Amino acid sequence: MKILVAPDSFKGSLTAMEAAENIERGILKADSEIEVDLLPMADGGEGTVQSLVDATEGKIIEKEVTGPLGNKVEAFYGLLGDGKTAVIEMAAASGLPLVPEGKKNPLKTTTYGTGELIASALEHGVKKIIIGIGGSATNDAGVGMAQALGAEILDAQGKEIGFGGGNLDQIAEINLENLDSRLDDIEILVACDVDNPLFGENGAAYVYAPQKGADKEMVEKLDQNLRYFNQIAIKELNKDPNQISGAGAAGGLGAGLVVFLDAELKAGVNIILDIIDFESKLKGVDLVLTGEGMLDGQSIYGKTPVGVSRTAAKKGIPVVAVAGTLGDGVEKVLEHGIKSYFSIIDRPADLKEIVERSPELLANLSEQIIRTIKL
């Protein structure tokens, strides 16, 4: 029997590779003759860089960049094993965890550091950049990111506008003539699993800005500024950001990456499956074990286990999912290629204990799954 182990990370507990290794440990305890292939997975969110670096034998690059509040922070990105692809999590440079609780303010936070990570990746001669845009602290429509790459975003006096979504209404001119020329030959894919427009009641400000520290008045200001940015982008760049599905992702960074860098927004898990050539990894496989920290009804909307199961189902390969916890509507995953699902929790316990025991719990569950199959 050949089993492909392809889990996402168990957030706050295990990286995707650690999860895969513990699943393997359980499988081999049940039957040491089983052939096991490990393939750490991701969906574009937290852990994507590490998962893809592990899966392709790439490396992590550390880089000091401008944080969301303009201070210097230590960030990172990944170079994949092919030497031609970089993977960036915008949250590493411009994420909410980088902003102290009392200083959250999307009127001021910037994506400049994300642009600096892109510039650093270009120094390695990559031909493709994958950017995961979850977990942002920002609402600046990617203007900071573009400024870091040489775009001139000017006010009425011909000066660069300041950082943050609160300054978007100061834009009078957008000049991309000095944008880093190395971007001309680069394919940029953006892992985006939301379809929010740039502005309006379902847009970046109203839906996401409150969790970034915005009160009602700030939300209204941010939304007005995003509307203004949309108008100026049409006028200056002949592009309408609000027509882009997912434009409102990451405080409008989804829109900014498209209008400034001609990026393409795609479902994160589909990008990952393509990058690692997942279908080729299924050759000769009898069973796939996948999983993540939480499996529920929302997992069918772009989460790793369902992305894996849909692909495996095309080849008639059964998939079993393991999870830290099972949430409401989890039974929906059974309609998308997953044949059965299990939680690692073996007895009542608090979250701290479960996290501490997660390697053991995951190995034990995997062992029992294989013992049951072998019956």
Rank of each mutant, 00 (worst) to 15 (best):
A148R: 11
L149W: 01
L149K: 05
L149R: 09
G150L: 06
A151R: 07
A151D: 02
I153R: 03
I153W: 03
L154V: 07
L154D: 04
L154C: 04
D155C: 03
A156P: 00
A156S: 09
Q157D: 13
Q157T: 10
G158S: 05
G158K: 09
K159W: 05
E160R: 11
E160Q: 13
E160P: 14
I161F: 11
I161T: 12
I161V: 15
I161M: 13
F163A: 08
G166P: 13
N167A: 05
D169M: 05
D169N: 14
D169V: 03
Q170L: 14
Q170Y: 07
A172I: 00
A172R: 12
E173D: 09
E173R: 08
N175S: 07
L176R: 05
L176K: 06
N178M: 13
L179A: 03
L179D: 08
S181W: 01
R182S: 08
L183D: 03
L183V: 01
I186F: 13
E187T: 14
I188K: 14
L189V: 06
L189Q: 12
V190Y: 05
C192R: 00
D193G: 05
D193Q: 07
V194C: 03
D195N: 14
D195F: 01
N196V: 03
N196F: 02
L198N: 10
F199P: 00
G200N: 12
G200F: 01
G203F: 02
G203R: 08
A204Y: 00
A204Q: 06
A205C: 05
Y206E: 07
Y206R: 11
V207P: 10
Y208S: 14
Y208E: 02
A209T: 11
A209K: 13
Q211D: 04
K212V: 14
K212H: 13
G213D: 13
A214V: 07
A214L: 06
D215L: 11
D215K: 09
D215V: 12
E217F: 12
M218C: 06
V219K: 14
V219C: 15
Q224L: 11
N225R: 05
N225L: 10
N225S: 10
N225Q: 10
R227E: 11
R227P: 05
R227C: 06
Y228E: 15
F229S: 08
Q231D: 15
I232A: 07
A233P: 06
A233M: 13
A233Y: 04
A233N: 10
I234V: 15
K235T: 11
E236W: 09
L237K: 09
L237N: 08
N238H: 12
K239L: 11
Q243S: 08
I244S: 04
S245F: 06
G246C: 04
G248K: 07
G248R: 03
A250S: 14
A250M: 04
G251D: 00
G251V: 00
G252Y: 00
G252H: 00
L253D: 12
G254A: 05
A255T: 02
G256K: 01
L257C: 11
V258R: 01
F260A: 10
F260G: 03
D262S: 08
A263V: 05
A263L: 13
A263F: 00
E264A: 08
L265S: 06
K266G: 00
A267W: 03
G268A: 00
G268N: 00
V269I: 15
N270W: 02
I271K: 03
I272H: 06
L273C: 04
D274N: 12
D274Y: 01
I275P: 01
I275F: 01
I275Y: 03
